[in-house]
Design a protein around this nucleic acid. Structure first.
Lengths: 340, 340
DNA sequence: CTGAAAGCGCTTACAG
DNA sequence: CTGAAAGCGCTTACAG
C-alpha cells in the first residue's frame, strides 16, 4: 500500500485503476457506470484492478461531473419530541428508506423544528446536497421553507396535501375525506346518533379533510357543538374527550382524527368509568401500533403507509428524472376491532 | 434571470460572482472562506455580487477541492424499533445535532440495523461522504462494520466503550461502574440486604460494567442467583422481574441497568401487588423521561447525555483536524425520587 | 469498443 | 491584498 507523506494512505483514483488495468480512465468510468461499451477483456481487467487497488469512487467528484448527488432528503418539519411521539413518522421513514435502498439512492434525514434548523435545512437543500426532497410535515406551517426550496428548482414530493402548494408540488395523500366518511358511516351503522369528533389541527390537510368527511357524512345530523380540536397528540385527545363530555354528556360515539388522540380519549373514558363501546363507541384513524395496544382495541381507518412511502419515492425519482410532478390519492381501509 | 436551454435556471458560479464584482475567482473564494486577505472594497463588491447573482456555493466542488465534506455521520447500529423505543438515542441525536449545528457542520443520520443496511452504511462512509462518524450502538455487535470504517481511516468517536476497539477508537462514556456502585450503595443504605439486579446485555460495555459495579459494591453479599439479564427493553425488564421473584421471593431491592427495564419491573411489581419501595426498592439508570412518569417516580443514576453529546462532537472534530483520538469518562449522579 | 481531452465548480500555493 | 494557473477526481461527447 502506498503511503503519502502524511499518515493516511492516499486513496486510489480512476487513474490508478486505469494504469493497473492497462486501459484509459474513460474505460474505467464506463465500467463504473453500467459497463456499456466495454469489452469483456477490459471489463475483467478493470474489475481486477479495482479489487487490487481497493478503489472506491469519490462521490464528490462524480457529483460535480454529473450534477447529480444520488441522494434525497427526508425533510421533517417537526420537533424531536413530535418525531418520537408520533409513530407515523417512523413508519414513513422506514418505508421511504427501504424504497430508496432498493434503487441505491441514499437518504439524508433532516429535522427542521426550529427556525434555526429550518434555515440550515434550506441552505443544505438549496445548496445542492440532494437531488430532491420528500417533504413530511403535518402542518402547513412552513410556507417560507417550502417556497424557497421550490423556487430553487429542487424537486419535492410531499406526504399529504401541502396546503398552499397543492398545485405546485407533487404529493401522495391518503383519501382522508372518504376515510372519515366511512368511519362516520360505520359509527352510524352501529345505531349511534350523537356522534362527536376530535378533529386534527386546522392547519393540516388531514385535519381539515377528516373533519370535512365527518361533516359531509353526517349532513343534517352534524352538530358543531360536538367538534373539538386536538393536535394529534395523545394528551390533546384526552383533553378533548373531557371537554366534549362536559359539553355534551349524551354523546354515544366519537371519531378521533388519529389513533393517538383516540387512545387519549379511551384513557379519559376509562378513568370516568364510561364503557367502550357500550356507552360510547370510539373510532380512530391511521391504524398505528397503538391501535392494538389499547383496551379495548381500536377500530380505525388504516392508512397505507408502506404504499404511500413507495409512491412518494417513485414520484420523486420521476421528477428528478425530469418529468412533471404527479399527485396521488390512496384509499384507506376500515379495520373493525373492539372499540366500535 | 438567465435561463439555459432547459427549464431550470443555470446556477451562478464563482466565475459569475467574480465577473459581477470585477475581481478574480481567487478573491471570491478567499471571501467565501473567512475573508482573510481581501480588501474592504473587494469584500463589499463580492458581497454585493453574491446578493445580486443569488450565488450558492457548490458543496461538491468545494469538497473535491478541499478533500473535506464538512459533515459527519451519526451511525446507529440499531433497528427502527429500538430507535423509537429507547429514548436515549433521541437524546444523543438531539444533543450531537445541536453541538454540530453550532459549528456549522451537518449531520447525516444513518441507521444500520440489518446486514443490508450495514453494507450500505459502510459504503457510504468509506466512500468519503462524511469526514467522520459518531458511533452509537449499545451492542458490541458490529465488529465488521467498525473494523472497515476504522481501516478506511475515517475518524470515529464512539458513545460508550466500543468493545473490541477500546484502544483503537476514541470514545466518550459514562462511568458505569462507579454509577452502579453508587446505586447499589444507596440501596444498602436503605437497609436492604437481598438486592437483585436486572443487568443489561452481556455484549454491551454498559451492561457489563453496571453489573461489575453492582458485584463489586456488594462484595461478599453478592449472590449470583439474584442476577437476571434483560435487553434494555421495558418488556425484558418486566420478564426479568418476574423471573427474579419466582427464584427469590425474599428480595427487598432491585437495581435495573436502565430506566426502561426498571419501568417494566415496576409494572410487574404493581400487578403482583408488591409495594414499592415498601417491600421492594427499585433503582434505575439513565434518568430518562420515563423516570418521572412511573408510579412511584424512579430513583436513578443520571447519565449526562448533553455533556456526552458535546464531548463526542468535540473529540470527533479534533480527530478530523488531525489529532489522535482521546477517550473520556464522565461521572453520573444519583437522583433520589420515590422508588428507593 | 476505446482513448484523448474538455469540463464540472471550487481552492490554494505561488508570484507579484 | 490580488490574479493566473494548477489541481481535486470524476464523466462525457467526440473521433476513431
Amino acid at each position: 500500500m502506498t503511503m503519502n507523506s502524511g499518515d493516511r494512505p492516499r486513496r486510489p483514483t480512476v487513474s490508478d485503476v486505469a494504469a493497473e488495468a492497462g486501459v484509459s480512465r474513460g474505460t474505467v468510468s464506463r465500467y463504473l457506470n453500467g459497463g456499456h461499451w466495454v469489452s469483456p477483456e477490459a471489463e475483467a481487467a478493470v474489475a481486477a484492478a479495482i479489487r487490487k487497488t481497493g478503489y472506491r469512487i469519490n462521490p464528490h467528484a462524480r457529483s460535480l461531473a454529473t450534477q447529480r448527488t444520488n441522494s434525497v432528503a427526508f425533510l421533517l418539519t417537526e420537533s424531536f419530541e413530535r418525531l418520537f411521539e408520533d409513530p407515523n413518522f417512523a413508519r414513513l421513514m422506514r418505508g421511504t428508506s427501504a424504497a430508496l435502498a432498493e434503487r441505491d439512492v441514499s437518504l439524508v434525514f433532516i429535522l427542521a423544528g426550529s427556525d434555526a434548523e429550518r434555515r440550515r435545512a434550506r441552505d443544505f437543500i438549496t445548496q445542492g446536497h440532494v437531488d430532491g426532497v420528500l417533504l413530511v410535515s403535518s402542518h402547513a406551517g412552513e410556507p417560507g421553507l417550502i417556497e424557497e426550496i421550490h423556487r430553487a428548482g429542487v424537486p419535492v414530493i410531499a406526504c399529504g396535501i401541502p396546503l398552499g402548494f397543492e398545485r405546485k408540488l407533487g404529493w401522495v395523500a391518503a383519501d382522508d375525506t372518504t376515510g372519515a366518511r366511512e368511519m362516520t358511516a360505520h359509527l352510524r351503522s352501529l345505531g349511534r346518533t350523537r356522534i362527536a369528533t376530535i378533529a386534527g389541527p386546522r392547519d393540516t390537510s388531514g385535519g381539515i379533510q377528516r373533519l370535512t368527511g365527518f361533516r359531509e357524512e353526517l349532513g343534517e345530523a352534524f352538530d358543531a357543538d360536538l367538534v373539538e380540536h386536538g393536535d394529534y397528540s395523545r394528551r390533546s385527545g384526552r383533553a378533548a374527550m373531557a371537554a366534549l363530555l362536559e359539553r355534551a354528556p349524551d354523546i354515544d360515539a366519537v371519531f378521533a382524527a388519529n389513533d393517538l388522540m383516540a387512545a387519549g380519549a379511551l384513557a379519559e373514558l376509562a378513568e370516568r368509568g364510561i364503557t367502550v363501546p357500550g356507552r360510547i363507541a370510539v373510532g380512530g384513524f391511521d391504524d398505528a401500533a397503538v391501535a392494538v395496544e389499547t383496551t379495548p382495541a381500536l377500530t380505525t381507518m388504516r392508512q397505507p403507509f408502506d404504499r404511500i412511502s413507495q409512491e412518494m419515492v417513485r414520484l420523486l425519482l420521476e421528477v428528478i428524472a425530469g418529468e412533471k410532478p404527479a399527485r396521488m390519492t390512496l384509499p384507506t381501509d376500515l379495520v373493525v376491532r373492539d372499540s366500535a
